[in-house]
Amino acid sequence: MFKDTFDKLCWLFLIVVLISTVVLIYTNIGTGSEKRAAGPSKTLERELSYRARVDLINQLYLPVENLRKEGNNQTALLKLDELIRKYPTEAHGHILQGDILQRMGAFDEAISSYVEGVKLNGDYVDTKSPLSRRAEIQKLVDGGLKDVGPRVAANPNNRSLVIARQKLNYLKSRLAGGCE
């Protein structure tokens, strides 16, 4: 690869390009120009928007949370209905609804709401997320499987019970983690 002038010129050009690259990087480190060129860190940007989203969600659903804390579950549910119709793809409403329905004793409907919420946004089963409801969902699944399991065994042809168990197993699978 050093046979003729063209080869030599190629090598020379390669060395020049490499040296220029190193010099360019070296002279620009710390000046901030590389940040300007690449724009702000996407990870930071996303983290900021995520936090803003969490704040917005908390603010949006605060009246419902307050009613729930006061024990006005039905009024909270009515308020929530408006919000779910307004933001149907926002998981938080479904998660809150699951929580309220569980408190009201509507177990099967609570499971369905949680499943809907977790399908829309898996952050609710993450330990790290500020939106995490992992402990509540875990409790629901543990209690639910204990309750539904024997009922399915006693009524194997009951489709509604089988569906309820499937939903619980879905939540169990999401709680177990994995890469998806």
């Binding site: 039905q74 009024t75 549910l77 308020k79 509507a106």
Partner: peptide, 27 residues
């Protein structure tokens, strides 16, 4: 019945804040 409250709220006939629920049964 809670179902009627729910339906009337959805239809805009009443607002969730109009009424106080003093007691509610298990479903």
């Amino acid at each position: 019945p809670v179902m009627d409250l729910e339906n009337m709220t959805r239809d805009g006939k009443i607002a969730a804040d109009d009424l106080v629920i003093l007691a509610q049964s298990k479903p």
